[in-house]
Design a protein around this nucleic acid. Structure first.
Lengths: 211, 211
DNA sequence: TAGATTGTTAATCGATTAACAATC
DNA sequence: TAGATTGTTAATCGATTAACAATC
């Protein structure tokens, strides 16, 4: 049943499944099962079958799933059968790290421009990029059809940057700034907040441990 | 009721509440309400009250919450009333970025050593650190009582690094490698996987958008 | 006091799991 | 065929929300 609305939490697990299938393809595996995937990912086999069932029937009873086929189907479902252009806002330490990150391109995500509002940074080289001023943002988004934006500015500026990106038509934001953004419902946001994750884990550590 | 087990999903929201309360303290606010917090965070006020109720009673009927007091209570609950030492494994691009990240110290998280198994990297300066070999890992963890580890090695090495850290007594792992780790139940893991988040969002973008 | 907001209960909603017929 | 595994249904489990008495 491909037409019902799929719970967001299910969509969020698909990239994990895809990652594992990519790995199995690398290993030369032909066939897998919901049981094996679940064991390797720490998820129940029932959940994997149920998640996949939102999108169609990909397996064979008694046999399991063809690894490459299921991988290809998940890539299609996640719109990984095309390239995605992104703009990166913020050329500080964090922006540098993101601009240098090698892991995006292999998955079809491409940073097509790095922007900062600091005149001291504009024009400077940043890896294979040259930092551009915010006045060039709209032009690049439109020319390169960038549908995604990466926010790597201080929290105090993130709200404003997000509004700008949304105004220019960007519909997905990966936000590294430690601040909750509220956006129109057609704009998706995901957060990367290492400090919040560390705090989450610290809760479970016995007090007195650590330094 | 401070003694029942608190759902993990609730614990995961506390850092977000804490972040907002820190912000309100900065702004000089004295009092807030579940309504205001919810509006600002895109969460229902009922959820905020219910979440907090797992840990005690922090507000006053008719008035709301004292911002600084609630902030301090959340810091205590999350064990942020102490310092936490961490080791960083991996001195590649990603390790460099993490080692340079300024945001940890202000929250009481400290990287006390950077490690890599590549002899070409060992001994090299990395910001304020000097990259150490894996043979020094145990000594540093024990000497500095590091309870947390940050994994910034390639996926192929992450499993082995995690086992090593766990063997040396580390009980919380922040994993930047794109691989699911299975750990003993007393060891917590959190994941940072930008590609997975981008794929999650790409699902919602109309096909044909992007590059 | 009157108005506001908490903490909590009960109802609702949604996600996960167990179980199994279908079938490869 | 016998064994294995899917896709799906129903049951269970857990999380969120609505509502309100308590009370500041």
């Amino acid at each position: 049943m491909s037409r019902n609305i799929v719970p967001d939490i299910v969509v969020g697990r698909l990239p994990i499944y895809l990652r594992m299938l990519d790995f199995l393809v690398q290993e030369g595996r032909q066939i897998t099962s919901s049981q094996e995937l679940g064991d390797r990912l720490g998820i129940s086999s029932a959940q994997i079958r149920k998640d996949l069932s939102h999108f169609g029937e990909f397996g064979k009873q008694g046999t399991g799933y063809n690894v490459a086929y299921l991988r290809d189907q998940l890539k299609r479902i996640l719109h990984m059968n095309q390239e995605w252009n992104m703009v990166l806002i913020g050329a500080g330490d964090l922006g540098h790290a993101i601009a240098h990150y090698q892991g995006f391109a292999a998955h079809g995500f491409h940073i097509v421009g790095v922007f900062d509002n600091d005149p001291a940074k504009v024009g400077k080289a940043l890896g294979k990029y040259v930092v551009q001023g915010m006045e060039d943002l709209q032009g690049v988004i439109e020319a390169d059809k960038a549908a995604m934006g990466i926010i790597a500015v201080p929290a105090a500026a993130a709200r404003q940057v997000a509004d700008l990106l949304i105004g220019y038509g960007v519909r997905a934001l990966l936000n590294y700034a430690p601040i909750t953004l509220t956006t129109p419902h057609h704009v998706k946001v995901q957060y990367i907040d290492p400090v919040a994750l560390l705090q989450h884990m610290a809760y479970y550590l016995p007090n007195g441990a650590g330094a």
